[in-house]
Design a protein around this nucleic acid. Structure first.
Length: 488
RNA sequence: GGUUCCGUGGCCGAGCGGCUAGGCAGUGGUCUGCAAAACCAUCUACAGCGGUUCGAAUCCGCUCGGAACCUCCA
């Protein structure tokens, strides 16, 4: 474990305060994140949440924790319509496209993984699916029934919220009171199976034409949406675990229901630290597939969309997200993205410069102090934007040293090289995505730049500029400096 | 309607009572054959109105504007 691990504080949505992070079992962290429902392509807003938690995972790992990271794939149980009404999202898509539900699941799971790879997000240690844990879900329902917090109705099982509320506060995570919820709940049709409008389904009775269904002690049916996370987190992380993450839009009712299910079924509150990421907005509004206010990663990477004029590198987008705190909304505009693109290029170039910097007898800046600030920023509830600002302080120092206007000692150089790599590559996850297989291009460029250098030596500016402009047209930027000419 | 949150300079975003983050853009320099980059300097802020305080972007109240959740959504 790193000494800095003792200083980590995390904002807990449950208490509304930053708390020093002390894991349940020393040295180990149980970490659960609500994953996507795979009935369509993930959009950029979804990605932001997963990238935010990727940062959390990476930092916990860096601190030396042995993290078990579980992120589910929801492949059944999500209903299209009002609460516990309507059709399963995946089944609907399957019906529309005349495919097996599992074909839909497979297609969009692959897409999800592909996108997360492009964003350089580390895969979770376990990625369980709801359909793979039907038995565990049934067992959990039995426990909740045995403890008297659920009832059967027409082959469906509902969670008895009012009963639960008698002994445990329902709504503590989202700051709701059950009386307010009752007054503000709309009257919905077809809720006659439920005793009370706040009750939610643990198991739903399935009709004959239903595509996805399983046998249970209560007949043929399928699990309710909220249940899978409870069943799977309990199975892989235990009745109580350290961190549960998800988007803010899942706070109510999903996470509230998880708390109730876990407490009712296992007798203990399931989660110690709740973390919620804020929304990525577009035109000032939350990105959302249902309203069409969204952007797909593929559209962004290819530039084929109506919002932006050009394509963007996944790493630029990731960097853009790292410049905002995960608990703040982040507005997505082409202007903001362009700014990030330039800033990112500056950072990466400085990283390259750092690796070939020469040291002096002493440092003209407090490198150790700067590195300490990197940790301070991350320890303060994963404050990536503050970290980035300190990284740019380092960038300025690196460039000044390169220009001969500042100095760095050998020890400090080694420290800065190590820590910059750690924070930029390992923690922020900003891999150099352009280091693709351009090995065949290298000798060609060497030759071209050689010819250009000859022209420059002869003061044949028209030839040298012709080469530079021509390469620029091909997307290759040539830069002359004292050390020679570079390109990218 | 209920609950919660937000409103920072041209743009994006930090900030959690005093020490005026950072990136991008702008302006003026240095450097350079030119360009780019880099470096130095510099200009635009805390929605409005009150209050608390020696001191407020930061705390309190009101007004205006926006968002999220209350129904599927990361």
């Amino acid at each position: 474990m790193k000494a800095e691990a003792a200083q980590l504080s995390i904002y807990n949505s449950l208490t509304g305060t930053k708390e020093t992070f002390i894991p349940l079992n020393e040295g180990f962290v149980g970490f659960y994140v609500c994953g996507p429902t795979v009935y369509s392509n993930v959009h950029l807003g979804n990605c932001r949440t997963f990238i935010s938690f990727d940062l959390v995972y990476r930092y916990l790992n860096h601190l030396g924790y042995k993290v078990r990271y579980v992120r589910n794939i929801t492949d059944v149980g999500h209903l299209v319509d009002d609460a516990d009404q309507g059709e399963d999202k995946i089944a609907k898509k399957a019906r529309l496209e005349q495919l097996e539900p599992m074909e839909i699941v497979q297609q969009y799971t692959i897409d999800f993984h592909d996108v997360m790879n492009q964003f350089n997000a580390i895969a979770p240690d376990i990625e369980p699916t709801a359909t793979g844990h039907i038995i565990e879900q049934i067992e959990l329902i039995k426990a909740i029934l045995d403890n008297g917090f659920a009832y059967e109705s027409n082959g469906s099982i509902y969670f008895d919220v009012e009963k639960y509320n008698e002994s445990h506060p329902y709504g503590e995570l989202s700051g709701r009171k059950i009386e307010d919820l009752l007054t503000n709940t709309r009257e919905l049709d077809g809720q006659n199976e439920k005793r009370a409008p706040l009750d939610f389904a643990l198991w739903k009775n399935a009709s004959d034409e239903h595509l996805m269904k399983w046998p249970s002690p209560w007949g043929i049916g399928f699990p309710g949406w909220h249940l899978e996370c409870s069943a799977m987190s309990t199975k892989y992380l235990g009745k109580q675990f350290d961190i549960h993450g998800g988007g803010m839009d899942l706070k109510f009712p999903h996470h509230e229901c998880e708390i109730a299910q876990g407490t009712a079924g296992c007798g203990i509150a399931p989660v110690r630290h709740w973390m919620h990421t804020n929304m990525l907005t577009l035109n000032g509004k939350k990105m959302s597939k249902s309203t069409g206010n969204s952007l797909l990663p593929a559209e962004l990477f290819s530039g084929e969309n109506d919002l932006l004029e050009k394509a963007y590198d996944p790493m630029v987008v990731r960097f853009f997200m790292m410049q905002a705190h995960y608990r703040s909304t982040l507005d997505f505009t082409s202007e903001a993205l362009n700014a990030s693109e330039k800033g990112y290029a500056k950072l990466i170039e400085a990283m390259d410069s750092l690796m070939s910097l020469t040291s002096s007898d002493s440092s003209s800046a407090d490198v150790e102090g700067l590195v300490a600030k990197f940790y301070e920023a991350m320890n303060d509830d994963f404050n990536a934007p503050i970290l980035v600002s300190h990284l740019f302080d380092a960038v300025k120092f690196i460039n000044s040293t390169k220009d001969g206007k500042a100095t760095i000692s050998a020890a400090d150089l080694s420290l800065l090289q190590t820590e910059m790599k750690v924070f930029v590559r390992d923690i922020l996850g900003l891999a150099k995505s352009s280091e693709s297989g351009e090995s065949r291009l290298d000798p060609v460029m060497d030759l071209i730049l050689d010819l250009r250098q000859e022209a420059r030596a002869n003061k044949d500016w028209s030839t040298s500029d012709k080469i530079r402009d021509g390469l620029a047209g091909a997307g290759i930027v040539v830069k002359d400096s004292k050390e020679g000419t570079s390109w990218n």
